[in-house]
């Protein structure tokens, strides 16, 4: 490996990780000041556990993430099957756009327009609205992961099952689904993570009734740097790390997403 390659890798990874490491390190700082190291302490984690509204927001987020990821996984898997296994159909271009556009659409647009829909049809803002919103943008991410796996599959396996007389539904249940199951699970984990992370869309559709963890964190972050937020962030980072490792292991591939 050349010196140039090594330098580029070193600088790139340092840039990606330095802020995260700083944040984690200062979550264990006894001092409340960010630039002063006051010794090792876990006091901010104790503050965190005693922070009722924050814990309540974390539970809300968890519920929303589980429900929305489940819906997104179902819809995303179906969308991937439609795009990869079911050939050409009328409106395919629009369908492809509808599946993939929510992934890049600026969140303020998605958030505002969903809110206007919910108000227009008289749906109460709150938990259910956030679940619907998160399921909508999670679908595209699940579809990308599952579609990639479907494309890599040996189609002759499905054809063999069909030749041996299995009905399409049976081919799917006993051949296709077991083969794509790891990527479906990885898609679920990604949709779950994205839901847990979303601030902007949730802020629009949540209304006064529901507060998710990022909304709670944001309201505190706006007031400035605060070691308790560092502690919360460290726990979230650890959760994300575990989820990535699980997803990578599930897909058995080099990477996910």
């Amino acid at each position: 490996m050349s010196a140039l390659t090594r330098t580029a890798l070193g600088l790139g990874l340092a840039f990606l990780y330095a802020p995260i490491l700083v944040l984690v390190a200062y979550s264990f700082n006894a001092s409340a000041l960010v630039t002063v190291w006051g010794g090792f302490s876990t006091r901010w984690y104790a503050t965190l556990i005693a922070d009722g509204p924050l814990i309540a927001a974390a539970w809300t987020s968890l519920k929303v993430a589980l429900a929305s990821a489940a819906i997104a996984t179902g819809l995303g898997t179906l969308a991937a099957l439609a795009l990869e296994r079911h050939g050409r159909f009328a409106g395919r271009g629009l369908f492809t756009g509808l599946v993939y556009a929510p992934m890049v659409m600026p969140e303020v647009i998605t958030g505002l327009s969903l809110l206007l829909l919910f108000v227009g049809i008289g749906l109460d803002r709150g938990l259910f609205a956030i679940v619907v919103a998160h399921a909508t943008f999670g679908t595209g991410f699940v579809a990308v992961i599952v579609a990639a796996r479907l494309r890599g599959l040996d189609r002759s396996l499905e054809e063999a099952a069909a030749d041996l007389g299995a009905a399409p539904a049976r081919v799917f249940a006993s051949v296709t689904l077991p083969l794509i199951a790891p990527s479906v699970a990885a898609g679920f984990l990604l949709a779950f993570t994205l839901s847990l992370d979303d601030l902007v869309i949730a802020s629009f559709v949540a209304g006064p009734g529901a507060t998710t963890l990022p909304m709670r964190l944001y309201s505190q972050v706006r007031l400035g740097v605060n070691p308790e937020i560092n502690a919360a962030s460290t726990l979230l980072l650890a959760t994300a790390g575990v989820l990535v490792l699980t997803a990578t292991w599930l897909t058995g591939r080099r990477t996910v997403a």
Partner: peptide, 26 residues
Amino acid sequence: QPLLVALVVVPFWTSFLIRVYAWIAI
């Protein structure tokens, strides 16, 4: 390479809000 890719993917899975917040202290 698998390790390097994983190292780039981890921040993608990590909270956007928190990664931006981390820069305030810096």
